Computed example of a mutant assay.
Amino acid sequence: MITNNFFQFEQYYNIFKQKGLLILALSYSTNLKLTSSIQYIPKDRSKDPIYAKYLKDLNNYSKTGEDNYVQGETRFAVLDGVGGYIQHGYDSSIISSRLAKYIKEYNNSSNDIKDCLAAAYQKVLEDPEVEAGATTVTLSQIDPSTGEMNVLNLGDSWLGVLRDGEFVNETLKQEYFFNAPYQLAKIPNTGKESRSISNKPEDADAYKFNLQKGDLVILSTDGMVDNWGRSKIADWWSEYLTDDCDLDKLNKEFVRLVNKDSKDQTFYSEFVKEYNLLKNSRYTGGKEDDITVLVVKVD
């Protein structure tokens, strides 16, 4: 009788799977093992005249540029400081690093990332070391016992879930207009506050995804997705990701290749494609920027 029930369960599970229903997926997603890797290459600010003018000591510049990240056991995030603040003399690597710090430190039994982001942002506003600046944020929390992943996305950083060679889930960027993302800000007193973009944590888009064994979760700042498109990202990871791969080594090579294309003026980047559509132009070239990629392998 037990055997018959098992085969009946398996039969119904296959039917649901074929029809694209995920009702029973959680039964196959318990006790997941998460392995993560963080890799980054910051943009060379020493060659940028604006940064050279406003940053007195580029040697002390953040090792991740204006990007930052959270790499916990179950909580993961990428953040991208908004570079426009440098023209007012403010370094947005500070606000992105402090927000990352407070996100990592937040501890609540509910693990509610909405509460986490709100509390972390409030601490940033109260932090005297953060004079001014703004940052985007993509924040995720994974429950390994169920496979449920909650995600908040504010701005143009990105999270995608790669499964069987394609992205089955991803976040959508939030922009007011081209290259003007939603952002959490601490506005300086310059007399131009009304023209500054400033969002609240509750403006973030919320997602809930169910993970399965074999999935790869990719979080990145726009320095990656502004260069490589979804199909190129999926094809590369699908070709090289294996059960026994060195995830750090693989991620390092991935970031190296994206960074190489970002500096290639003959490369047809996603950023240029979008710009050409808007302006009816025919430019080519990569978009040089800070690149941060955090991957989570689900086993």
Results as ranks from 00 to 15, higher is better:
62 S>H: 12
137 V>C: 11
247 L>M: 07
197 I>R: 08
52 A>S: 14
276 N>L: 04
168 V>H: 03
69 Y>H: 13
102 Y>G: 12
21 L>G: 00
151 V>M: 06
155 G>R: 09
33 K>M: 09
245 C>Q: 01
131 E>G: 08
105 E>A: 15
287 K>C: 05
169 N>V: 03
8 Q>I: 14
53 K>H: 14
237 W>C: 07
10 E>H: 06
134 A>D: 04
188 P>K: 11
175 E>Q: 14
15 I>C: 01
6 F>D: 11
191 G>S: 08
237 W>T: 06
110 S>P: 00
35 T>Y: 05
68 N>H: 12
180 A>H: 10
248 D>W: 01
69 Y>I: 11
252 K>T: 13
269 S>K: 03
52 A>L: 11
130 V>K: 01
200 K>C: 10
134 A>G: 15
226 D>A: 11
130 V>Y: 03
173 K>V: 09
129 E>C: 03
104 K>Q: 15
60 N>H: 11
24 L>C: 05
23 I>D: 10
13 Y>F: 13
28 Y>L: 05
102 Y>T: 13
252 K>E: 12
21 L>D: 10
190 T>I: 10
165 G>V: 11
58 L>V: 09
33 K>S: 14
119 A>V: 13
144 P>V: 04
15 I>H: 11
158 W>P: 00
151 V>Q: 02
241 L>K: 03
231 S>I: 15
114 K>I: 09
174 Q>H: 04
294 L>Q: 02
230 R>M: 13
299 D>W: 00
270 E>D: 12
236 W>C: 04
45 R>Y: 07
293 V>R: 04
113 I>E: 07
270 E>A: 13
147 G>W: 05
245 C>T: 14
57 D>A: 03
288 E>Y: 11
94 I>C: 01
102 Y>I: 10
77 A>P: 02
100 A>Y: 02
241 L>I: 06
63 K>V: 15
238 S>P: 02
78 V>E: 02
225 V>M: 09
61 Y>Q: 08
100 A>Q: 03
45 R>W: 00
80 D>H: 04
216 L>S: 12
186 K>S: 08
294 L>M: 02
79 L>T: 02
163 R>I: 11
189 N>E: 14
130 V>Q: 03
111 N>H: 12
50 I>V: 15
245 C>R: 02
241 L>G: 01
78 V>A: 02
222 D>H: 05
268 Y>E: 06
130 V>A: 10
211 L>F: 05
73 E>H: 06
36 S>R: 08
16 F>A: 12
287 K>W: 01
98 R>C: 07
136 T>R: 01
229 G>V: 09
69 Y>R: 02
145 S>E: 12
262 S>C: 05
183 Q>H: 04
46 S>F: 05
174 Q>F: 01
71 Q>Y: 00
254 F>V: 08
211 L>H: 07
82 V>W: 00
269 S>T: 06
224 M>I: 12
124 V>P: 00
127 D>G: 10
196 S>W: 05
107 N>E: 14
55 L>M: 13
90 Y>M: 03
158 W>Y: 12
20 G>Q: 02
209 F>P: 00
13 Y>S: 12
39 Q>F: 06
39 Q>Y: 04
188 P>Q: 06
252 K>N: 13
47 K>Y: 04
72 G>H: 06
